[in-house]
Computed example of a mutant assay.
Amino acid sequence: MPTTPLIVDVDTGIDDSLALLYLLASPEAELVGITCTAGNVNARQVAINNLAWLELCNGPDVEVALGAEVPIIAPLMTTEETHGPQGIGYAELPAPTRTLSTRHATQVWIDNARKRPGEITGLITGPLTNLALAVKLEPELPLLLKRIVVMGGAFNHPGNTTPTTEWNVAVDPDAAKIVFDAFSVVPDDRRPVICALDVTERIEMHPHHIAELARAAGSTPDEIISPDDEPGRRSQASNKVIRHLSDAVRFYMEFHRLYEQGFLAHMHDPFAAAVALDPSLATVREATVDVELAGTLTRGQTVADWRGMWGQRPNAAIVVDTDPAEFFRRTIDRVGALARALG
């Protein structure tokens, strides 16, 4: 099976965690490096979460590097109310013994891209700060990478942070602007793939998905998350991956219910990970994308010119459709098998 070399840039929260599990469970994913940025929680906690998931899953000895701890200009926002005080909901992962790289995240991006020009796909599921800083240091980076897949933005869809703005872009809109501008030079077949809220909010994880994952992992007893449970109930699953994943996702479901979105969890980041490995999972439409930086009400809004009104060539392939059931089938098969193997 051909492999996909990946640099994964994350702000590990709950859905980033499942994205990592999806990649660890996918034999075609070659993790070249994991870079950490502030977003869902502070960057150092993000790094701890990444190391802990790798260790729990007996993952490869991949380089995990700390990156930007603050946005380029804006003050840092984090969202512990969405992802929990450590970013992983109610899960309490064992403290990792693995250590962080001595290199900065930007150096991981640049050195690996230079070493393997045209080979590496970048997957960014947090704010775009690290990639923006790397592009400033190495302007050729967009041409050195094979492609990037970004979870971020909202186009014909409401925002989830402000009425018009998605979280990852809202944290560092200046970085998003830098990246979209920089990647305008890439060939048509290597345009950034943007997984925005328009589609990712259709990737709804429900309690039955967790139950199916647990069955696939051979975990006992039946893993039942119910909206009638008292808040904060902890999993008793025999399988360690299922137990921690269930505790993380329960927190996320409780958050979504609190904000009247239903007892479910939007799995934005795992979907982007799946698309990075198999672009055929997504239907895309090309557009020219820019980021509003000056609006008093709309700073951070991602704007797509679908019709060429700006007279500029497209710089992004925006995901406009997918099959959520197929995504969850793959997730359950892959992560379930990984969990079963780990016991």
Results as ranks from 00 to 15, higher is better:
312 Q>G: 06
312 Q>L: 15
312 Q>M: 12
312 Q>V: 15
313 R>I: 14
313 R>F: 14
313 R>E: 15
314 P>H: 12
314 P>G: 08
314 P>M: 11
314 P>W: 12
315 N>F: 14
316 A>T: 14
316 A>K: 09
316 A>D: 12
316 A>I: 14
317 A>F: 13
318 I>C: 12
318 I>S: 03
318 I>A: 11
318 I>Y: 04
319 V>N: 05
320 V>E: 09
320 V>H: 09
321 D>R: 09
321 D>N: 15
321 D>H: 13
321 D>E: 14
322 T>A: 01
322 T>P: 06
323 D>C: 11
323 D>T: 08
325 A>P: 01
325 A>C: 02
326 E>P: 07
326 E>R: 15
326 E>F: 05
326 E>I: 13
327 F>G: 06
327 F>H: 06
327 F>L: 10
327 F>P: 02
327 F>D: 05
327 F>I: 00
328 F>S: 00
328 F>T: 01
329 R>I: 09
329 R>T: 11
330 R>I: 09
330 R>G: 11
330 R>D: 08
330 R>W: 12
331 T>H: 10
332 I>E: 03
332 I>W: 03
333 D>C: 00
333 D>R: 02
334 R>L: 01
334 R>W: 11
335 V>F: 12
335 V>G: 05
335 V>I: 15
335 V>W: 10
336 G>W: 04
336 G>F: 04
336 G>A: 06
337 A>I: 07
337 A>F: 03
338 L>K: 03
338 L>Q: 03
338 L>N: 07
339 A>T: 08
339 A>M: 03
340 R>K: 13
340 R>W: 09
341 A>F: 06
341 A>E: 09
341 A>K: 07
341 A>C: 10
341 A>Q: 12
341 A>W: 01
